[in-house]
Design a binder for these strands. Structure first.
Lengths: 144, 144
DNA sequence: TAGCAACAGTTGTTATAGCAACTATTTTGC
DNA sequence: GCAAAATAGTTGCTATAACAACTGTTGCTA
């Protein structure tokens, strides 16, 4: 591993790519008046897959801070897309799940997300995808 | 390009990796009481390299919104690390440059940044780095 | 079983991200 | 020349990120 390449700004490149993707997604959401943010979408997607989870599980699944989850969920509840349900045995726990409107939102937005995911990859191969996954997983594992 | 791999969450992985890196850097900065954030560091690094730039140039160089630049610079000015200087010809323009304290901060923090950059890459090769760069650049170019 | 640690979640605060609207200049087009 | 457009930067607002401190609940253990 040479010095020059270590000094190269991969942090910057990750950041720039992620911002480009996030802005693209958000502009498409706004253009089609989906009335959600990218991160709100990520929680909706996760709640659709897991049906019934706690704040903690959602935080782990999405790589988000639990305080951030708490605040995004608050917004989704206000929008009527998510409902909270207290655990009858452990009164500290609150289960989260999509409302019927939340499920509708998922089904409404899902196709355009699928198309947008294709856009970033249109000139890349499955091998590229596996390489990216491998490298990012390795960096993730290397960092304390 | 198969459907399954398109639906895989590369967005999520980028986000998670970047957060891991950012949190690691921030914790190291805090532990050694450098009294800066990761993004403040990125601006300092950029100002050290370019000596004298405008808000606009800095925004382009760092892939940050110009309003974000404006606010981070405000914090750096308050800390005495950056100074603003009006252009004598075009009174709309403000040049930014590091103060002597800003240069000291750069030289103080630079070595640990260099070490931290190594940490993420310790089990990866230069070929991996080139692959990551190529793939991220391609995604960046693919996204409108 | 009393006390305390651990756990689940919320709230306060500061920072970054981005859009819209704004001021103040400079440039352009006629 | 002068009005309109473009440019440089700031401010207001909402959202996400993360830490610290907080409430309330449950589990552990001396």
């Amino acid at each position: 591993m040479t010095d020059t390449f270590v000094s190269n700004p991969s942090f910057f490149k990750l950041d720039a790519t992620l911002k480009k993707l996030r802005n693209y997604w958000q502009k498409e959401f706004d253009a089609k008046q989906k009335d959600i943010t990218v991160d709100q979408w990520l929680l909706i997607e996760n709640l659709y897959k897991h049906k019934k989870t706690t704040h903690n599980e959602l935080a782990r699944n999405t790589s988000k801070d639990i305080t951030t989850i708490s605040r995004i969920i608050e917004l989704l509840v206000k929008k009527g897309l998510v409902k909270r349900e207290a655990d009858s045995l452990d009164r500290r726990k609150v289960y989260l799940q999509l409302t019927p409107e939340g499920v509708d939102k998922y089904k409404d937005v899902k196709p355009m997300v699928h198309e947008m995911r294709k856009v970033g990859w249109k000139t890349l191969s499955e091998k590229d995808y596996n390489e990216l996954t491998r490298i990012l997983d390795t960096i993730y594992a290397n960092v304390p």
